[in-house]
Design a protein around this nucleic acid. Structure first.
Length: 472
RNA sequence: GCUCCCUUCGUCUAGAGGCCCAGGACAUAGCCCUCUCAAGGCUGUAACACGGGUUCGAAUCCCGUAGGGAGCGCCA
């Protein structure tokens, strides 16, 4: 696994739980971990944390993987690409967890807890009301063997709790935040195995990272204060923990946690709205991470430029305006084939390749999202567009002679703008805006839009003449 | 409530005691180019949350205040 003489190969992972759509924050975490691995020629794993059978859905896993790949994020090993460190679905790792639970039980660093959810909730509320931290009260911590046997005989289902040592300090080096130190007294005994026998997050997440050889776990800051628990578990198990790093969360424009109130929060939605994957990736890449590089970057360039030293510790605001800028860049740099695929759903059925290309050629520099192109489909391929009041005025002012010359030139040349404009200039002596604006308005119904010459080339033959002749 | 994290232009950020009366990118404003829009070129506006220290010197170190966030779950 390790390159000869070098450091052990870097291994990172993205470990989502399939309880919903891929959230922007998670997408960024996935991207950062991919980049972190790739920047060192390492491996990137996808692990599905579906220990909560109630909320985990297989369809979510499928969608999650599709959205990641859409973004350009692919993994070296995962649920659909198993290897000897797998399985990569936690729901299939029960046997492995059972062995580790047994180790913990043997060392008596865990104990069965018979408290019911209701009792725990009451206790929490009472503590909160008394102005105390809502931690597990330790009711079952010192149950005698006889007491335990008694409860078990009664058939009470028990969770397994980790016996957090008192009066200790848990220290670790966060590779984003630097040295961290927590007092174990502030940590309540926590559940490592649920009453139904399934592994709880703190446990399975930490154990899997260790067993899968993860060297760096880069995750959201919401996990920062949980890290000591995981370190405690791993230490008890004698497993080497990964290095942990925590990036600040993404927040909305007002600085509050990013929610549907602010913007679309799932990759799905941006995808559905016609955003380019590279645009989203570039935006996420610079959210909480900085690079001296400018412009739209490919994934390989991002990997080369990725640097944990430049991960932010302060929350980054998700600014949709900025995303739009990247989107514009991404759209403008689309290959002809990609552009065709992007706008295909909007185009009239049966449009031939030549016409399609001409249309896209004309429109692409002026659109950011597919919806921007939609009205132009009608303008170019539909009937004569109605003019607004200002348009009518411009046309009237230009006069019938102007349009007679234009229509004649259009009939003679096809949809050739230089020929049409030349003829009108000759006939009227107009130039500049006075020459072109009436043409634009008569042809498109609008005063603004893509360049006229390519737009005319995209128009079906005869359309230009027909529209100009209306005012002759 | 307790613990932890955070705070530099509108936004993303550079900045590890003098190189900073704070640099870049995007946004924005003006001008140029131009048939409109977009693109492009040039020029500009714009920030160290606040208060105390330490130091010859602080955006940078320390303490406090304010504001934001997270965790304290049989969610992850």
């Amino acid at each position: 696994m390790s390159p000869p003489g070098g450091e052990p190969q870097r291994v990172t992972r993205f470990a989502p739980s399939p309880t919903g759509e891929l959230h922007l924050g998670n997408a960024r975490t996935a991207l950062f971990n991919l980049l972190l691995a790739r920047s060192a020629g390492g491996r990137f794993l996808l692990r599905i944390e579906d220990t909560d059978a109630e909320r985990s859905l297989d369809s979510h896993t499928t969608a999650l993987m599709a959205d990641l790949r859409w973004l350009g994020i692919d993994w070296d090993a995962g649920p659909d690409r198993e290897d000897e460190r797998g399985p990569y679905r936690q729901s299939q790792r029960g046997a492995l967890y059972a062995r580790q639970f047994a180790v913990l039980e043997r060392q008596e660093v865990v104990y069965p807890c018979f408290c019911t959810p209701l009792e725990l909730e009451l206790s929490r509320r009472a503590q909160l009301a008394a102005g105390k931290p809502p931690r597990y009260a330790g009711t079952c911590r010192d149950l005698t063997p006889a007491g335990r046997a008694h409860r078990q005989a009664q058939g009470s289902a028990a969770t397994l709790r980790f016996r957090v040592p008192r009066g200790e300090r848990v220290r670790f080096e966060d590779f984003v935040h630097g040295p961290q130190s927590f007092l174990s007294d502030d940590i309540g005994d926590f559940v490592v195995r649920r009453a139904d026998g399934s592994a709880a997050f703190f446990f399975s997440n930490a154990v899997d990272d260790a067993c899968m050889g993860v060297t760096q776990a880069l995750r959201g800051e919401d996990h920062l204060t949980n890290t000591p628990r995981q370190l405690l578990i791993l230490a008890a198990l004698g497993l080497a923990p990964p290095a942990y790093g925590h990036v600040a969360l993404i927040v909305g424009a007002d600085g509050a946690p990013l929610s549907k109130r602010h913007a679309a929060v799932s990759v799905r939605e941006y995808r559905a709205r016609g955003y380019q994957p590279l645009a989203l990736a570039n935006h996420l890449f610079r959210l909480g991470h900085s690079t001296p590089l400018h412009g739209l970057l490919g994934l390989e360039e991002m990997a080369r430029a990725f640097d944990t030293a430049h991960l932010g510790r302060a929350p980054a605001r998700f600014d949709e305006q900025q995303l739009l800028v990247w989107q514009k860049d991404a759209v403008h740099s689309l290959s002809p084939q990609a552009a065709r695929a992007w706008l295909a759903p909007l185009l009239p059925a049966g449009l031939d390749a030549h016409a399609t290309d001409a249309f896209i050629d004309a429109l692409l520099p002026n659109v950011v999202l597919p919806e921007d192109a939609r009205p132009w489909v009608d303008i170019v391929f539909g009937g004569p567009p109605p003019l607004g009041a200002a348009g009518e005025q411009l046309v009237r002012e230009a006069g019938a002679g102007y349009f007679a010359a234009a229509a004649a030139a259009a009939a003679a040349s096809g949809n050739d703008l230089p020929a049409i404009a030349g003829a009108v200039r000759e006939a009227t002596g107009r130039k500049g805006a006075a020459l072109y604006m009436p043409l634009r308005v008569a042809l498109t119904g609008r005063e603004h839009g893509p360049e006229l010459a390519p737009l005319l080339r995209a128009m079906p033959a005869g359309k230009a003449r027909e529209r100009l002749a209306r005012f002759a």
